[in-house]
């Protein structure tokens, strides 16, 4: 995303190598190869869900790579009086650390942040992806899910990394279980004041219904509580729907994935595609953006979208298996820790 100056000779070298037969990239990867992706979930203890992702980090002293940290935090919102929406809402934001773009001024950094935020927010907060368990009390209280992504380093392909990290953080998010309650004042004349007793019944007084009948609870309840303070909660709904993004760098004759910064500078035409793969349904294209100087013919665009879907499916599957592995690793770690006491 940031401008890195490259000489004309370097750009032409990269371009001719990519268009040779067979195509050759600077580090020898195939056109569709991704660099090594390192993923860890549960890195921010104060957040409801978090993930750290690094694409292309060199081992040992090499450093480098595109590093992104994503975390979700849930806040309660008032639907009637506040900003809340019935059923909850999601807000995404991307921040870029100045260490990711050390040669940019803070204004330019803000612009990069804004662009990335827009793409992420418009895709993730769309109603087709909305999870079902973000509501608390219908029409009264709901969850606001804040998804914050921080870019610590950018070595190319930052948008794919952001979407992968966002998906991982959302996968890792646990929504606290709530139980609707209502304080019910004792009927007049029925004894001493126990008006502030927490009673789990909801119906209007005088109907003679049993206090155990909680059928209408959620409809009329005014507040909620956490039944178990220490329980992390249930998994955020819609795990299968969160999209992955593939960025196709487009050359006249073909395209390639996961560009490094010099490659991005040499092939400025990029097609970002975000796909969602809900289970037992055909895949959905959630976002499409064509950036950079250049143009595409419509048939070319169609084939690129079809190809993009294939790549996204592979990425989706790989990411999902890695996420399940991470869950397992953390459960095993927790179990071992508990057992060793």
């Amino acid at each position: 995303m940031a401008s890195v100056s490259l000489s004309k000779a370097e750009k032409s070298f990269i371009q001719t190598s990519l268009q040779a037969t067979p195509p050759l990239r600077a580090d020898g990867r195939a056109l569709l190869d991704y660099r090594t992706v390192l993923l860890e979930t549960g890195v921010a203890s104060q957040a409801n869900g978090s993930a750290k992702l690094n694409v292309g980090k060199a081992p040992l002293e090499g450093g480098g790579g595109t590093e992104v940290l994503a975390a979700t935090k849930l806040e309660v919102e008032d639907v009637e009086n506040g900003d809340g929406l019935d059923g909850g809402r999601i807000v995404c934001a991307v921040t870029c650390s100045p260490s990711a773009y050390p040669h940019l001024s803070s204004n330019a950094l803000d612009e990069v942040q804004y662009d990335l935020t827009m793409i992420l927010h418009q895709t993730i907060s769309h109603q087709t992806l909305h999870p079902k368990n973000l509501g608390i009390l219908p029409k009264k209280k709901s969850w606001l899910l804040n998804l914050d992504v921080v870019v610590f380093a950018d070595a190319g392909n930052v948008l794919d990394a952001i979407f992968m990290a966002a998906r991982a953080a959302l996968w890792d998010t646990k929504v606290p279980r709530t139980r609707a309650i209502q304080y019910q004042a004792k009927k007049a004349g029925s004894g001493t004041g126990s008006g502030d007793m927490d009673v789990d019944s909801g119906n209007e007084p005088g109907h003679g219904l049993s206090g155990f009948d909680t059928r209408d609870m959620a409809r009329t309840a005014a507040d909620f509580e956490l039944p178990d303070y220490w329980d992390e909660g249930e998994v955020l709904d819609g795990r299968d729907r969160w999209p992955v993004c593939v960025t196709l760098n487009v050359l006249p004759s073909h395209h390639y994935l996961d560009a490094t910064t010099p490659e991005e500078a040499s092939t400025p035409l990029k097609l970002h595609l975000a796909f969602s793969f809900p289970t037992d349904q055909p895949c959905h294209l959630q976002a499409l953006r064509l950036l950079g100087p250049g143009e595409l013919q419509l048939p070319q665009l169609k084939t690129l979208i079809a190809d993009g879907e294939k790549y996204a499916k592979e990425l989706f599957t790989a990411l999902e298996s890695k996420l399940r592995d991470e869950d397992l690793r953390r459960n095993v770690k927790a179990r071992d820790k508990f057992a060793s006491r």
Binding site: A44, Q46, A47, S50, L69, A71, T72, K73, E75, A93, T95, S97, P98, S106, N146, D148, V150
Partner: peptide, 18 residues
């Protein structure tokens, strides 16, 4: 010196501008 505080670093989420 530039300092950035991640929004989820504290118990309560707060987005602090630069």
């Amino acid at each position: 010196v530039e300092v950035g505080v991640l929004p989820f670093s504290a118990g309560e989420r707060r987005r602090r501008g630069r």
